[in-house]
Amino acid sequence: MSSSVAIIDYGMGNLHSVASALKHAGAGEVIVSHDPAAIGRADHVVFPGVGAIRDCMSEIRRLGCDTLLIDALEHTHKPVLAICVGMQALLTRSQENGGVDTLGIIEGEVRFFGHNHRDAEGARLKVPHMGWNHVDQRVDHPLWANIPDHSRFYFVHSYWVEPTDDNVIAATFDYGVSGTAALARNNLFAVQFHPEKSHDLGRRLLSNFLNWNGQC
């Protein structure tokens, strides 16, 4: 299957990595845009994100990307993959930048790891959480196909997602807290790590996404 993918572009940083990783994973056509017509034609939608949440949210709203995302999720029912800050933007509120209201698509909070962050034994944990950590799968899901449980993926973030409803958690990571590595609800899948930077297993996850029809 050679499906087309639209990466929602709200002008916050480089989307080439995501685009080239999707092509490498077998996407037929990759569109980087915030044009509703272009996104409307795509079979799959990716909601990426890098940078500070306040600037991301203001650009998401200014360019109408919140409407595009909700349309894909709730009206056209396309498979949607949110990545990193794209995932954090789905929650209700983030502690970053002194507190920012986010999209509220998934109820819950985005929290700071904290200064002088430590694990249960008191060992120092650096922030950002940067590097390859284990992803512990909590549910069976088409996006985990052929990906062994407890595999390592590349993370880089200082804030972590805590949804109100545990049932949406598709995977966790351990870094002083049991943080949400992935969320899944209906045709939405969201990851805190970067599949586009996670070598072969990242490519496998992107390929699974391209082959997904949005059903669980």
Binding site: D119, L125, H129, G131, W132, N133, R152, F173, D174, Y175
Partner: peptide, 8 residues
Amino acid sequence: MPLAKRII
């Protein structure tokens, strides 16, 4: 400590 030390 689950986070891997990186080789670059």
